[in-house]
């Protein structure tokens, strides 16, 4: 019953103390492996090492937006409270990841293609993804009533899912500067295994850290929305064990 705010709060209290260290250790392990131990690329030398943050951040931003779209749908159609909470909790870290994707992509592009930026399908649609995230956050801050804010933000989140599909397939549909995926979930990856494993590990680490961030933000939002309830009042006077 994760749909109940109170249950969600207790559940996340038991998950965060172990999920947070696991996420941090996994991410650091993947990055150290990728930066210091993976072999250099025969064409790109060492600039390719940007991949170990670029791909995890980009995939995280895309997945996060898909989750935002689902939360938007549930919030708009069924008006579920926890979906409204998630709509608020998922967006900020996703926006940070979209920004990281753009910046690291530019810094990788310069030594590889000779330019920081080009207005092609992949890059432009990724920039739009960042704007969609910022738009969802802004709508929630501008509209006072939290339920009305969730409806507006939820609609925008749903519309933006179309853009996620464009980002994903832009490298296959049209000519772009961006290289195609070498890492495939189904079928043979064309990336060297010595590069694939550190990439998969840092990807997992960053996704887990995203989950930690969402849980933390959702707890704050739940606490605020339920501030008039008895269980929150009790929590405020007598903090749970192991919490500040």
């Amino acid at each position: 019953m994760l749909g109940s705010p109170r249950y969600f709060y207790t559940f996340s209290s038991s998950v965060l103390p172990w999920l947070t260290p696991i996420a941090l250790v996994t991410l650091l392990a993947g990055l150290v492996w990728g930066l210091g131990f993976a072999p250099s690329d025969y064409q790109q030398g060492n600039s390719y090492r940007i991949i170990f943050i670029h791909v995890p951040a980009s995939s995280g931003a895309l997945m996060g937006y898909m989750a935002l779209g689902v939360a938007g749908l549930v919030a708009v159609v069924w008006r579920m409270k926890m979906a409204e909470v998630m709509l608020k909790a998922i967006a900020p870290f996703g926006a940070a990841l979209a920004a990281i994707s753009l910046v690291t992509g530019a810094l990788w592009g310069k030594p590889t293609w000779g330019t920081y930026w080009q207005w092609d399908a992949r890059m432009t649609s990724m920039l739009i993804l960042l704007f969609m995230y910022v738009g969802v956050i802004a709508l929630q801050n501008v509209i006072r009533d939290p339920r009305q804010a969730a409806r507006a933000a939820g609609l925008l989140a749903m519309v933006g899912v179309i853009n996620v599909i464009i980002v994903k397939y832009s490298v296959e549909w049209v000519q772009t500067l961006h290289q195609g995926s070498t890492l495939k979930l189904f079928g043979e990856s064309t990336i060297n295994p010595a590069m694939k494993y550190p990439l998969l590990i840092s990807m997992l680490g960053l996704w887990l850290l995203y989950a930690v961030n969402v849980l933390m933000r959702a707890r704050t939002e739940v606490m605020w929305r339920e501030r008039r309830s008895k269980w929150v009042a009790k929590l405020v006077t007598r903090p749970e064990k192991g919490e500040q």
Partner: peptide
Amino acid sequence: MGKHGFYVWSAYGISAFLIIASMVLA
């Protein structure tokens, strides 16, 4: 990083800043 230290380290620096900032804000 070969000749690419500037690109690699600024990519990781900016990423670390944004990730840490988002965690601290949360």
